[in-house]
Design a protein around this nucleic acid. Sequence first.
DNA 1: CCATTTCATGCACGGATCGTGCGCACTTCT
DNA 2: AGAAGTGCGCACGATCCGTGCATGAAATGG
Lengths: 158, 158
Amino acid sequence: MPEVDAFDLKILAALQDDGRLTNQQLGDLVGLSASQCSRRRMRLEEEKVIAGYHADLAGEALGFGLIAFIHITLATHSPDNAKRFRELVNRVDDIQEAYALTGDADYVLKVMLRDLKSLSDIVNNVLMPHQSVAHVRSSIVLDRLKESTKLPLKALQE
Amino acid sequence: MPEVDAFDLKILAALQDDGRLTNQQLGDLVGLSASQCSRRRMRLEEEKVIAGYHADLAGEALGFGLIAFIHITLATHSPDNAKRFRELVNRVDDIQEAYALTGDADYVLKVMLRDLKSLSDIVNNVLMPHQSVAHVRSSIVLDRLKESTKLPLKALQE
DNA sequence: CCATTTCATGCACGGATCGTGCGCACTTCT
DNA sequence: AGAAGTGCGCACGATCCGTGCATGAAATGG
């Protein structure tokens, strides 16, 4: 169980906003020296509180204009079937996120694609024919109101 | 319309994996000098192909053990109502992602929370009482099979 | 066909940044 | 009170950063 104090939270919040902050900039923001920020950052990385750093790319600029959620119901709930479905999910790069859910469907997938034809390809040629899949229903994203993976750390800083 | 060549794609793919790569490391990976990588990276940032860099934090380690999707149906589809709902979404930090959808529901929200009580709070005390909202249905995430925001750039590198 | 322009590249260099060793202040425990 | 431990800033050598500049290849034009 990693210990995270108020300085750590500030550092995490800052790096969540800008993952390429210099230790000096970080120090100015949180009120520590650069060396100390370097040490804390290394510790947080070591403890896997910071899982990694990633560039956030503009999907539209690169031709990925379509986001969709695909709800999946499995044919049976046998372990074998679930395993096969997991392998499928990991194999397909277009699937960005995949969750097992309570409620109507068994799984929901988030995909980012070039166009509707690509979605049709995925659904009809990859998912539907797979032996583990019984039912597929997709919802197309019309508008992105908000999209970030930032945790609300402010709530912890009281 | 930004131009992106094969070197740029390699750079983007590498920075998508590790956003703190040194220009030297980047150069070794893609087969360019560090200075050239620096210049290309600056251009891609300038053109907003790279939208930013973010630390990816381990939600569980920080006490965010619960992910849920909340499907929302609006009371009416008037522009006023939609606007009020957008303001609500932007105001609540626990809502990480929000999309307008085709299909059954009008919107889907992705939230990351501490526990079921927090989910109940959000649903019953924030969303349900809001005048723009007519119907709320939430699905809790039982398991995360895959979670990344990486674009499948490989498909573009043919 | 050749002269000229344009452009991407690698190298060099001064300044910034990095991780680490060290000494100091403060807390904790006996 | 004394010892051990902890977190801090400073200092320092190594690395990394952005930029100016020369080179060479491709495009342009007469």
